[in-house]
């Protein structure tokens, strides 16, 4: 029972971070129909930004959340305006290929600039853990989990209760009517995309105490984010949250009880099952 509880909690905590990465992905898809294959790379960029701040300005990861968030906002804006805006409204595969190219491009530009060295961001809480009731919770993971949930919560609140959020949901439902209602879709899309990127970047910051920073680290989270989004339903923020937690736990359980190197298969099988049985996911809109 002890092991089961520990495994589940391990999974839950990393699931929180998966949720944060996925939430950005699902927002982007929900509002403008773009499948962003480079989401993981923006997590990586967030990590590099965090590292830069820590190394040159001596700003630790957690205080760095705000500046990195702002940086990613700018990055998201630029990327949207130069690339993504062109393919909104085009068939999904176009966006997949474009963002795939972006993903390869970003990974390797960072490689050329920074080299492939594994970088670290030092924090004081790195090795600390909360130990109680036979369980062990690494502090960095707990903080990541809590902060991730806070951001997801803020985003949900924004979408549900603010005018901006309502405008986003309107665009997601039906762009033409939204325009008639006086909403500027281009502005909404830009903002939604930027926010999605910010979420990825923030997740990156939260991850730096736990992982080395290197150009390829984005790929680890990319695929998981997609699985989470499909499970939760493309376009649903609560879905991304729940999906993230479920996938985190599932991965952890498969790893412990089946075999560690088969852990990804558990995730993929669930993913395929969801795709075949209920492609709209837990909370998504019905897909024909």
């Amino acid at each position: 029972m002890d092991i089961f509880l520990q495994t589940t909690i391990n999974g839950l905590m990393i699931g929180g971070v998966y949720a944060l990465v996925a939430v950005g992905l699902t927002l982007i898809f929900g509002v403008m129909g773009i499948v962003n294959f480079a989401q993981g790379e923006f997590v990586m960029l967030g990590m590099y930004a965090s590292w830069m701040l820590a190394t040159y300005l001596k700003v630790g990861p957690y205080p760095g959340l705000l500046p990195v968030g702002l940086i990613m906002l700018a990055v998201g804006y630029i990327v949207f305006r130069t690339l993504i805006a062109r393919v909104v409204g085009k068939p999904d595969e176009v966006a997949i290929l474009l963002t795939l190219g972006l993903s390869i491009f970003l990974q390797n530009v960072i490689l050329v600039i920074y080299g492939a060295d594994y970088l670290t961001v030092q924090t004081t809480i790195k090795d600390a853990a909360l130990n109680f009731a036979g369980l062990s919770l690494p502090l960095a993971r707990v903080v990541a989990f809590v902060v991730a949930l806070i951001f997801v919560g803020l985003l949900s609140y924004m979408l549900a209760k603010t005018d901006l959020g309502r405008a986003m949901r309107a665009c997601a439902e039906n762009r033409n009517i939204a325009t008639l209602l006086g909403i500027n879709p281009k502005f909404i899309f830009t903002l939604a995309f930027a926010i999605g990127i910010v979420m990825a970047g923030l997740a990156g910051v939260l991850l730096t105490p736990m992982f080395y920073v290197y150009p390829g680290i984005g790929t680890l989270f990319n695929l998981t984010a997609f699985v989470v989004v499909v499970l939760g339903g493309m376009g649903s923020v609560p879905g991304a949250l729940l999906g993230g937690l479920i996938i985190g736990i599932l991965e952890s359980l498969t790893g412990t009880y089946v075999a560690l190197d088969l852990a990804p298969i558990g995730t993929w099988l669930v993913f395929l099952l969801v795709l075949f049985l209920r492609p709209s996911g837990l909370f998504g809109r019905r897909v024909n």
Binding site: T7, N10, I14, P138, F221, G255, L260, A263, P264
Partner: peptide
């Protein structure tokens, strides 16, 4: 036990 290179979470491994 084998683990995948570059895995994100060592807690399941350590639990084992």
């Amino acid at each position: 036990e084998a683990y995948p290179h570059g895995f994100t979470d060592a807690s399941p491994l350590v639990t084992k």
